[in-house]
Computed example of a mutant assay.
Amino acid sequence: MTESGRVRLIDVAREAGTSVSTVSRALNGSELISPQVVAHVRAVADELGYRADRRAQEFKLGRPRTVGVTVPDLANPFFSEVLKGLAAAARTDGHRLLIGESGEDPEEELRLVEEIADHSAALVLCSSRLTRGGLEKALALPVPVVCINRTVKNAGAVAIDYRAASRLLLDHLTGLGHRRILYVGGPASSWSDAERRRTLRRTARSLDVTLDEMEGGWSGRHGYEAGPTVVGSRATAVITFNDLVGVGLLSWLHDNGVDVPAELSVASYDDIPIAAYSRPPLTSLRNERARLGELAWKQLAGRLAGAEWPRPDLLAPELVARASTGPARRRVRIRAHG
């Protein structure tokens, strides 16, 4: 027995009076071992409290049952719901998740990917921040890869339809009379932020709307810190990278006496639960986050069974209009706030 107290095959073999290979075959149901020996070995193993190292067995048999997953930040509720959908779908096929958080760092994400791949049958990169070169390295690993919220070649892909999302947001705001809109962006390494910017620009041009842009981030703190720049702009409506940024911005506006939506409308992406309970409740784009995880597993399961990668699955969001957006009024530059 080891110092940690774990019972090993050699301990079972010594107690049973047989070889390690015989114990291994008996516990794995080999037909080469007589029923009497199998019964004896299993009785000894039970008495000693032996538990098989299933991970080692899986790799010895060439059938690991673990799916490696990387996420930028586990504090973001968006990812927890994606992971729930992915875990539930994988569990029905006898797989489990091994999750690594990169802390929004592309280099750390690549290290995680390379380490997790050694213990996994497949990889899911959730809102990957990898550079193009890093992504190429990930796709070169000897396991299938699915990206959530990032479309790539030679891999699976599941994402939000940002063209449809941008149209919904801008149609809503222009329908309220807004003609100058500010986008508070997300992390520079975020593929989804680039897609939001690209599709917002294209849609704004088609609607003859002025779209201004500024740097932002992914958290409530980033939204709060954006407040002075937002009120110093000429926009009558703001779209934020996600709801965390949107709620942070609403908090700053409240603290500084800016009336939402009378002076400024605010809308966002993702519709995480907190969006409905902010003050005022935040207009946002609802997407099926758990469904993203389910579809990612469906693509992986097909690939593991020998199928070709399907076309990317794009999920169309739903606009949930709340009290943070209202009719545009003639914009008087909001007074400077400290």
Score class of each variant (00 low, 15 high):
305 A>E: 13
121 A>G: 09
2 T>Q: 12
291 R>W: 02
21 S>D: 14
35 P>M: 12
90 A>M: 05
287 N>T: 11
128 S>R: 02
212 D>C: 10
322 R>G: 01
327 P>E: 15
273 P>I: 12
138 A>P: 07
215 E>I: 04
217 G>F: 01
34 S>K: 12
126 C>R: 00
249 L>A: 09
159 A>M: 12
88 A>D: 15
144 P>W: 12
267 A>C: 05
76 N>L: 01
248 G>L: 00
156 G>P: 07
327 P>Y: 11
198 R>W: 12
284 S>Y: 09
179 R>L: 13
18 T>N: 01
27 L>V: 13
294 E>F: 08
245 V>T: 11
67 V>Q: 01
51 R>H: 15
86 L>T: 03
220 G>P: 06
201 R>Y: 07
337 H>K: 15
139 L>N: 00
287 N>L: 08
315 L>G: 06
233 S>R: 00
63 R>Q: 15
70 T>N: 01
323 A>F: 08
159 A>R: 06
142 P>L: 10
98 L>E: 11
44 V>F: 06
295 L>Y: 15
310 P>V: 05
85 G>E: 09
221 R>D: 12
265 S>N: 13
229 T>Q: 12
44 V>G: 04
210 T>S: 04
330 R>K: 14
51 R>T: 15
114 E>A: 06
236 T>P: 03
253 L>Y: 03
26 A>H: 11
14 R>T: 13
1 M>I: 13
135 L>T: 00
2 T>A: 12
117 A>M: 05
28 N>V: 02
54 R>M: 14
178 H>K: 09
15 E>I: 00
138 A>K: 07
317 P>S: 10
279 R>V: 13
222 H>M: 11
323 A>H: 12
303 R>P: 05
338 G>H: 11
185 G>F: 01
10 I>N: 12
157 A>H: 05
112 L>C: 11
100 G>R: 05
109 E>W: 05
11 D>S: 06
214 M>Y: 07
92 T>W: 00
125 L>E: 07
193 D>G: 01
321 A>D: 06
138 A>V: 05
293 G>M: 03
33 I>H: 09
122 A>Y: 04
234 R>L: 00
58 E>I: 07
65 R>D: 04
277 Y>T: 15
210 T>C: 04
308 E>G: 15
157 A>C: 07
138 A>T: 11
331 R>N: 09
335 R>F: 06
168 L>F: 08
91 R>H: 02
134 G>W: 03
187 P>T: 09
323 A>S: 14
241 F>W: 07
284 S>T: 14
148 I>R: 06
284 S>P: 04
1 M>H: 13
242 N>G: 08
197 R>G: 09
164 A>S: 15
20 V>T: 15
263 E>N: 14
138 A>M: 07
148 I>N: 07
294 E>L: 04
261 P>M: 13
36 Q>N: 02
125 L>S: 04
322 R>S: 02
185 G>W: 02
300 L>A: 00
321 A>Y: 10
21 S>M: 15
273 P>H: 14
107 E>Q: 13
260 V>K: 03
338 G>Q: 10
323 A>P: 10
140 A>P: 09
160 I>E: 11
319 L>H: 03
73 D>K: 01
118 D>F: 08
4 S>D: 04
281 P>F: 06
307 A>R: 14
40 H>T: 00
39 A>R: 13
79 F>G: 02
158 V>Y: 02
